[in-house]
């Protein structure tokens, strides 16, 4: 999916600026990592792109069409081509992993199939294949409240893999995973997007992971694009400026001091 964003603004209120004029252009099949400090507006930007939030002003075009000018049914069809991975996947605790995964295609399936699938899962093989790529096959028939936080986050990813959308929006997709698993999971996601020619935008806390897996990196700070460069061009200076805090004494930012990707403790998905 092709994305064009220009001067996108989102007002949350006086004390918390959402987005203060964002310009971004992505070609079909491009992969971009978004980095930036907490509260910079990464999630807001992703939610605007997912058409879950409507920006206060500015233009958003997905495949050269403004989603907010579409009719109800057209918007629904467009949305079924967008897959969002949430930091804390909003899966009902008592739903089974197989059903939660299959729910990815509710926008495509005919109604009768979706209804039947509530009682008897309609594409067990498909769900199994999606989970297999994330090493979760043995959790297929478990309930969502019976798997760990990291496994649940991967179930959320499996749902999007199964959905096979033209645009993948991943908000901290690997925050609850250990470094090695995070790298592997991100690789699976990138490969999937590459094979299908899907566009992928992932916000990441772990700067090293972003530099290792993505060719293009966008830094977001205070609701604006701070820099938009290829991974090789991003300098230490860029990162220091991006993460510099007014409250914490200036020094090397936390994301750079550790060689390993940081696992956010507060972002653990809770079921």
């Amino acid at each position: 999916m092709e994305i064009l964003v220009s001067d996108l603004r989102l007002n949350y209120g006086a004390e918390q600026p959402g987005l203060a004029g964002v310009d971004l252009r992505l070609a079909r099949g491009e992969q971009v990592a978004i980095i930036g400090p907490s509260g910079a507006g990464k999630t807001s930007l992703l939610r605007c792109l997912a058409t879950a939030l409507r920006a206060s002003s500015g233009t958003l075009q997905l495949d050269t069409r403004d989603p907010w000018r579409l009719g109800r049914e057209d918007l629904r069809v467009l949305r079924s081509r967008i897959g969002t991975i949430h930091q804390a996947p909003p899966l009902p605790p008592r739903q089974r992993v197989v059903t939660a995964t299959l729910a990815g295609r509710l926008g495509v399936w005919p109604i009768w199939k979706s209804l039947l699938s509530l009682i008897a899962p309609q594409d067990i093989a498909g769900a199994r294949a999606a989970l297999q790529r994330l090493d979760l096959t043995d959790k297929l028939f478990e309930r969502c409240d019976q798997v760990s936080g990291g496994q649940l986050q991967r179930v959320g990813i499996a749902r999007v893999l199964y959905q096979a959308p033209a645009l993948i929006l991943a908000d901290e997709p690997v925050s609850a995973l250990d470094p090695a698993l995070a790298d592997h999971t991100l690789a699976v996601l990138c490969d999937d997007a590459r094979q299908r020619g899907a566009t992928l935008i992932a916000s990441l806390h772990a700067v090293d992971l972003a530099r290792a897996r993505f060719s293009r990196i966008v830094g977001v700070r205070d609701g604006r694009i701070a820099f938009d460069k290829s991974a090789g061009e991003v300098s230490e200076g860029d990162l220091t400026a991006l993460y510099a805090s007014e409250r914490v004494t200036p020094g090397s930012p936390p994301a750079l001091t550790s060689a390993l990707p940081r696992v956010s403790a507060t972002g653990l998905p809770c079921c």
Binding site: T51, R76, S80, I82, T84, P90, P92, A103, S114
Partner: peptide, 23 residues
């Protein structure tokens, strides 16, 4: 849960059945 399904294109009724009802 329901909102997430709506933004991935699920019709209202199904988003309710898959996202809200199980909760």
């Amino acid at each position: 849960g329901e909102a997430a399904l709506r933004t991935s294109g699920a019709p209202r009724s199904l988003a309710f059945l898959y996202g809200a009802l199980p909760q």
